[in-house]
């Protein structure tokens, strides 16, 4: 086990406020199957924290454990500042909301009736007003009187979100909130998450949509039974991929070695296609003008010079490819 317990090594958030979630060496086993193991991280208040990983990585089990639905096998955690114990369950649940993978609505009840149940369970006094606001937030006011059984998957997902909004949670767990949604509905859910962030709600988001995680999350964690990486998306990119420039010329360079070695800051280069080159550089912004000058001096016809962008997806694939244990279960 790592002896290093500095904040960086434990995946702690950048903020100075007391964290919304602290997870310390948490493990959950079902019999002899390990759902997740030795997971430690913390999430700052108001942070949107992405929780990524392949199918069966233990994401849903982590959400259920932190949501007091199931007990961890070992390790400790605190949720919304309350230590995670079964006795504290009701107290924790008062301050959080969980939207499970499957929204689980009563199909024979209307949207409003479903929400009325949960407003009651949170002992809300002005339930009607709250339900109205929640429906408004997810753009469902017009469907308030429809039976949930008659709603499409996307609409049901939104009812689930409205339900999660009812108790004004400090921490909101969203388990794949956009799975199966069309691009417009996805964007609406994403906007909602942005809205939550603006209101200071801590969001714990599991998703398989990496571009969504990249766009929405302050930090992301990669889980594959154990925690593999935690950090800001741009930091992860930098960590896993050396920074590089892609140069494209009209015709192949006669002596690429001479050209690129004359530019300061180029560490190495490799051809990519007939007249395209990827340069490993220390600082793309400062090196690009140098490379341009060198190319022009060598009489090359430059088509483009651009900084190579790696998406979070590249990070993900890189991690999973490097991972001997990442076989699908």
């Amino acid at each position: 086990m790592e002896a290093d317990t500095t904040t960086a090594a434990r995946g702690e958030p950048p903020s100075g406020k007391p964290p919304a979630l602290v997870v310390d060496h948490l493990t959950k086993r079902f019999g002899d199957r390990t759902a997740f193991e030795d997971v430690s991280f913390s999430v700052a208040q108001g942070e949107v924290f992405g929780f990524l990983g392949p199918n069966g990585a233990g994401k849903t089990t982590t959400v259920r454990t932190l949501g007091t639905l199931i007990a961890p096998t070992s390790g400790s955690a605190s949720v919304a500042g309350i230590p995670l114990t079964m006795d504290n369950g009701p107290e924790i649940r008062q301050h959080i909301a969980i939207m499970p993978e499957n929204p689980g609505l009563y199909r024979r009840l209307t949207v409003t009736e479903n929400l009325q149940l949960f407003a009651g369970l949170y002992e809300q006094r002005n339930a009607t007003v709250r339900i109205g606001e929640a429906l408004e937030a997810v753009n469902l006011t017009a469907r308030a009187r429809d039976l949930c059984g008659s709603l499409s998957k996307g609409l049901r997902q939104r009812v689930g979100l409205a339900r999660a909004l009812l108790n004004d949670p400090a921490v909101m767990f969203l388990d794949e909130p956009t799975s199966g949604l069309d691009p417009v509905a996805t964007r609406e859910v994403n906007d909602l998450i942005v809205g939550l962030r603006q209101r200071g709600v801590t969001v714990f988001l599991t998703t398989h949509r990496l571009e969504e995680a990249e766009r929405l999350c302050d930090r992301v964690a990669f889980l594959n039974t154990t925690l593999r990486l935690v950090g800001r998306p741009d930091e992860l990119r930098e960590r896993l991929f050396s920074r590089s420039l892609t140069v494209e010329t009209l015709t192949p360079l006669a002596a690429p070695d001479d050209v690129f070695n004359s530019a300061v800051g180029v560490e190495s280069w490799r051809p990519e296609g007939a007249s395209s080159y990827v340069l490993s550089v220390t600082d793309p912004r400062n090196v690009a003008p140098q490379v341009t000058r060198a190319l022009v001096a060598a009489g090359a016809d430059v088509v483009s010079i651009s900084e190579s962008r790696h998406s979070l997806e590249d990070v993900y694939l890189q991690l999973i490819n490097d991972d001997p244990e990442a076989s699908p279960r």
Binding site: T7, A8, G11, P13, G31, T226, R228, L229, R232
Partner: peptide, 20 residues
Amino acid sequence: GQVPPAGTVRRIPRIGGSDD
């Protein structure tokens, strides 16, 4: 079964926040 014996936990690469 699948549970590795104690002490075999893999090293986890982690990246901290901007302040550290």
